[in-house]
Every structure is written in C-alpha cells, then in structure tokens.
Design a protein around this nucleic acid. Structure first.
Length: 270
DNA sequence: CGCACCCCCTGCCGGC
DNA sequence: TGCCGGCAGGGGGTGC
C-alpha cells in the first residue's frame, strides 16, 4: 500500500525524533518476511547512530554513522512507527529497534511482504532500483517520452514500473492518469508530447498534494506516529467504480490493467 | 518484450 | 450466524 507519498510522510514524521539517536538494541522477533531478514541484521544496527532518515522510491532509507544504509520496504501492509518505552507489544510486531531515549522503532507487518536490510551506501541503488524520482527536476516530459518510445505496454504499467520510475503504485497511477486525462490502457509509446506534459504535471501535482495530506489511508497505512492520512478523501477515481465522476458525472469504470485493478473516467480520459 | 499466471501472507468483506 | 471464495496498496519469478 505505501507508495511514495506515504513513505515520504513516514520519513518526515519520524526524522526529527530519530535523527541523532543511537540504536541500543535490536530484536528480530520474526525474520520470515518476503525476503528473510539476514542473520547479521541486528549486529549491523546495534550501536549505530542514525544521522538521517529519508526515502528513495518506496523505500525508507536511514543513514547510519558508519555510512551504511538501513533500508525498510513496507510491502503492502507494513508499518514503521515510533513507540514509547512502555507501549505493549502488538501482534505482527516483527522487528523492534530500541533507541537511546528509551523509545522504539517498530516494524509491524500483517502480511509480511516487507523487506529490511542494512547495506553499504554504494549498494543502495542496486537494492531500491535506479528509476527516476517522479518529483525530481530531471524527470521531464521529454525524458518519459523517450523511455516510452516504441513500447506497447499500457501507460499505467509504465508509470508503475519501478525500474523506470520509482514510487508510483496502484493508487497513484490511476489518480495521476485521471488528472492527465489519459486512459490507463493507452500504449505508452503512442502518447503525444502534449499528453506526456500533462502526465508529468499531474504526477507532480498529485504526489505533492498527497504528501501535503499525509498520504492515503485506505486500510493499513499510518504515519510514523500512527496518524491517518487524508488524501483518500481526494481520490477522483481509485475505488470509485460506478460512482459519478466528480468532473462530469459519468460513472467511473474499473478494469484490470497489468494485473492490477484500475479505475478511470471513460469520458474525461481518452 | 509483454503479459498472464503463480507465489509470498493474513485479514476482511460479501454472498450464500 | 457461519463458512468460503475473492480480493487487497508490494514485488519477484516463470513460461508462453
């Protein structure tokens, strides 16, 4: 579930509280995530100080004082939250990281699709992918048009391909294409220059607005202090099948595109 | 190359 | 009320 805006919100909510803190103990209660947590995971964190907390694509990146990076990918249902010293343990708390102020960073994940690892700075790109950041200046319409040239896959699949563009998942792909007025099944290589301009503008606007709203809380997502986001209230198409388009009143349609449920307005999007 | 499937795992919801 | 199938925001793999 957590896409770029949710991961960004978690990083921003936690950074002021964890940057500068030293990791005093690490408890891996359940290592069997999608990728098993490495045996030396705890050792690599133990005693380190957190010098920065940010995001790359959908991955949380904590910079450690030995230059290594602690990467946290939340999968579908992962939560990464800060708890007080006395807070009780909860079901699906898989990793607990105790800080030197007595608080704990907790990785909780019902479905265990997440991923936690500690790698060297140089290895980060290989682990999180080398795709373009949607909000970076360099991610311009002509750049996406070039990546899409000659490709027959649906534009929605291209937006979600983390090898090309990082951070956009199933919710925001549908929302971005609505704002751009482009149907999700359009062949990526056949979008016009003007359409790429609209897609890039929509991408920035939707992701910026979603970050400003603290992300979308559909069911599991909460920020680093378990607060809800509110961007779900601004969704124009996601999970609105059959409801009237907020722009023109036409019922929103759904379809499966690239294996994922997809929502669009047949009138506003062409 | 693109996609249709399968997998990972648990919880929830709607239908019967 | 209770059971069961289908579905869920993530990614990765295989085979056609």
């Amino acid at each position: 579930m957590p896409e770029l805006p949710e991961v960004e919100t978690i990083a921003r909510s936690l950074a002021p509280h964890v940057v500068g803190r030293r990791i005093e103990h690490v408890l891996v209660r359940e290592p069997r995530l999608r990728q098993r947590i490495a045996r030396d995971f705890a050792t690599r964190l133990q005693g380190r100080r957190i010098v920065a907390l940010g995001r790359s694509g959908k991955t949380l990146v904590a910079v450690l004082d030995d230059e290594r990076r602690w990467l946290v990918h939340l999968g579908m249902t992962g939560r990464f939250t800060l708890r007080g010293a006395g807070d009780p343990r909860r079901p699906h708390d898989h990793v607990v990281v105790g800080l030197d102020d007595g608080r704990r960073l907790v990785y909780n994940d019902v479905r265990r699709f997440g991923r936690l690892l500690v790698v060297s700075a140089e290895a980060v790109a290989a682990e999180v992918g080398r795709g373009l950041e949607p909000l970076a200046e360099a991610t311009r319409p002509d750049v996406l048009a070039r990546l899409a040239r000659g490709r027959r896959l649906p534009v929605k699949a291209l937006l979600m391909d983390q090898r090309l563009l990082v951070g956009i998942g199933n919710i925001y792909a549908s929302e971005i294409l609505f704002h751009a007025g482009v149907r999700p099944r359009r062949r990526a290589g056949r979008l016009t220059r003007a359409e790429w301009e609209r897609v890039v503008a929509a991408m920035r606007r939707v992701l910026d607005d979603a970050i400003a709203c603290g992300g979308s809380s559909i069911s599991d997502y909460r920020d680093g202090f378990e607060r809800f986001g509110s961007y779900q209230q601004r969704h124009r198409v996601y999970d609105r099948r059959g409801d009237p388009c907020l722009a023109c009143g036409t019922p929103i349609r759904s379809a499966v595109v690239a294996g994922r449920s997809t929502f669009y307005c047949p009138a506003c999007q062409r």
